[in-house]
Design a binder for these strands. Structure first.
Lengths: 210, 210
DNA sequence: ACCGTAACGGACGCCTGCGTCCGGTTGAGT
DNA sequence: ACTCAACCGGACGCAGGCGTCCGTTACGGT
């Protein structure tokens, strides 16, 4: 916790760290977050002690492992926000994010979990949600996004997307793509749609979408 | 396995059996299927041995515990099928089934699992799906249900609904209700909707919906 | 080439859940 | 009331995951 310890790892240590992260990413993506630490160590070809030395808690490992997924998430919403047509940008975000989550089961769990102290993940979540909320506001202005949409609806759909489990990654992505298609249709403003049941509060402190 | 053993349990045994089932139902509903057997025994106020004697495998316990849920499921689809307007009946099924699954987390898992040997559950599943397929066919004929709907889409949505987890049962039901509302909008035939990505095969042997 | 130390990983003890055995208890038939 | 067997549940051994300790290895600076 003090600053006297060397911030440069030895070459072998750095190499092991990389292999641990690779193993963690692979296992998290395939099996979700609750794979045993031992399993990750085994796949990385290191002892358990090494894993625990580098990442004392599973949370730190998760945070480190999903750093680039979070970057990808930001990139997606930024791209969507930059789209000339807000509604199309909004749709793009849904499609891309669903696919991202479909390809990586662990990331979905990490993204949803909101576990304490994972500042990196939850910060990314906050940013993403905030940006999407703004995009949704603009999409509503164009009249294509239904006016009764709230941000929690997106969270709802992400949670739902997480529920889709299949045998292979290929079918997983297919299923998720079709699901995203349905979601977009459900979110699209249609003149003759029945009023929806009221939304439940899912996010702890959601930026208001409307 | 042979038929020489008495098919009538002693009164105390029968009483315990009931309390075990009650405990199992409560815990399954709240926490899902993977609660420890011990926990169920503890809540029922019996020893682990008693639990295992009555239900040698967890599957038998699950099957017995969800017998009435399965009946409820059948009742829902029967009611939906009997509705004069097939589309409205179809919607009703979606709403009711989503709520049923929202109220009982364990049932969703049991319904989805397709684990081997749970003849009762999977038979109920088969029946339900088959009946809904027929209802969907009729709903399509009225033009209200989109023509490119396939039965796997309903399974997809049930899986998705399963993904929705919240803190309390109340919000769970609220969220699920809103989700069902979106699903119905997504399934409704709208003249100007974009073509959907192709569906993935989710059921092992699905009765064809179209 | 040498040496100090960061880094390694096998091995340990703990805990939790699993399924089963056995001595004591109690319902039910005479 | 008596008896017998059906029934009960505490206790046991097993398996797997957890986090940590310590003797050994090998990197990197001189």
């Amino acid at each position: 916790m003090t600053d006297h310890l060397p911030h440069t790892l030895r070459s072998d240590a750095l190499d092991n760290r990389e292999r641990i992260l690779d193993a963690a990413r692979a296992l998290f993506a395939a099996d979700g977050l609750d794979v045993p630490m031992r399993e990750i160590a085994r796949r990385a070809g290191v002892g358990p002690a090494t894993l625990y030395r580098r990442f004392p808690t599973k949370q730190e490992l998760v945070t480190a492992a999903f750093a680039d997924q979070i970057r990808a998430c930001r990139a997606i919403v930024d791209e969507g926000s930059a789209h000339p047509d807000p509604w199309r940008g909004f749709c793009l975000v849904i499609e891309r994010v669903c696919e991202l989550h479909a390809r990586d089961r662990g990331f979905t769990e990490a993204f949803m979990a909101t576990f304490p102290g994972a500042t990196d993940v939850s910060a990314g979540r906050e940013y993403t949600l905030k940006a999407v909320a703004e995009l949704a506001r603009r999409a509503k202005e164009t009249g294509r996004l239904r006016p009764d949409f709230v941000l929690d609806d997106l969270v709802l759909m992400l949670m739902a997307n997480k529920g889709i489990h299949t045998t292979s990654v290929t079918t997983q992505v297919m299923a998720s793509r079709r699901f995203a298609g349905f979601v977009i249709q459900a979110f699209e403003n249609c003149p003759r749609h029945a009023p929806l049941p009221s939304a439940a509060r899912l996010t702890s402190a959601a930026p208001t979408a409307d």
